[in-house]
Amino acid sequence: MMSKELSIKNSLIIRESRVFRNGELIFEADQGLSTTKFLKKVYNDQKLKYSKFFKMDELSKLGYLGTEILTNGSIEDKETALVFANSASSLETDVAFAQTMEEFPSPSLFVYTLPNIMLGEISIRHQLRSENIFFISEEFDPLLFIDYTTALFQQEKVENVLCGWVNLHNNDYDVFLWKIANSGGMEFNEEELKKLYLPTHE
């Protein structure tokens, strides 16, 4: 069925106050830091200058930071599709918005009560007018990413796809981003994805 073998070009993980690019630890902060403080530290460490960052909710910040670090701040193919998923949707921001409902419902929080806003933020930053989808699944589901992404390639709609699992719940974040292209990397299959996602389980 597959016309061409697809490849995982690179990957990035942010969890437990650490950032890994292609399996290599590139940043570490004190364990137990709040998500807000940790994200600010990563932003400063990367010497990023993007004022929109400070308006984002934490879920979008995670997606934005992950994308900046994975791509070194540059996505050349403006038709790179975004295929993302998580487990808790925008629940953290939902709760924050619901708290403002009692007094004065906050429009700036309400816009972030959809998980795909993160895709809008990444698209604005990199000027991508490309395919978007956001899935919700109980846990990281490699086959869903593989099937949906492979279909995009088979239908000749894309040459590059940025995939992302960006979950945030109860101050616990889990970010796994990787890029898929027609050639030049690891094989794009369930086993490789699982290994990259949970390297300690090797």
């Binding site: 975004l82 429009p107 816009v111 806003i117 895709l119 809008g120 933020e121 698209s123 604005i124 990199h126 000027q127 991508l128 007018r129 490309s130 395919e131 978007n132 989808i133 239908q155 709609k157």
Partner: peptide, 13 residues
């Protein structure tokens, strides 16, 4: 037949 999505890359709301 087919469907295609595209982002505005302009504004979130």
């Amino acid at each position: 037949i087919d469907a295609i999505t595209a982002n505005d890359a302009n504004h979130i709301s």
